Simulated assay, not measured.
Amino acid sequence: MPRPRKQQISLEATPYYHCTSRCVRRAFLCGLDSLTGKDYEYRRQWVEDRILFLGEVFCIDVCAYAVMSNHHHVVLHINMAEAQSLTDLEVCERWHKLYKGTLLTQKFLKGELLDEAQWLAVKEKLDHWRLELANISRWMWALNEPIARMANAEDQCTGRFWESRFKSQALLDEKALAACMAYVDLNPIRARMAKTPESSDHTSIKRRIENQETNNPQPLKLAEFVGNPREPMPQGLPFHLQDYVQLVDITGRAIREDKRGFINNNLPPILERLNISSHEWLVLTTQFESKFKSLVGCKEKLMLAAKALGLQRRPAYANCEAILH
Rank of each mutant, 00 (worst) to 15 (best):
E163I: 05
E145H: 09
A148C: 10
E174H: 10
L172K: 03
E163Q: 15
N187C: 00
N152P: 10
S164I: 00
R192P: 00
M193D: 05
Y183R: 04
C157Q: 15
M150L: 13
K175L: 01
E174F: 02
R149E: 12
V184H: 03
T196Q: 09
I147V: 15
D185I: 06
D155T: 11
W162V: 06
E145I: 03
N152C: 11
A194Q: 06
E145Q: 12
K175P: 03
R190C: 10
P146V: 11
A182M: 06
A178C: 15
A153Y: 07
L171R: 03
N152H: 10
L186G: 08
E174M: 07
L177R: 03
A148F: 08
M150N: 06
K167W: 07
R192V: 14
E163R: 09
N187V: 00
T158K: 13
I147A: 07
N152L: 11
N152Y: 08
R192S: 14
I147M: 09
E154D: 13
L186M: 11
C157I: 15
W162Q: 07
A182R: 04
P146W: 05
L177M: 06
A176D: 04
L186D: 06
T158W: 09
R165Q: 14
A178L: 13
R190W: 08
L171N: 01
N144C: 11
T158I: 11
Y183E: 03
M193H: 13
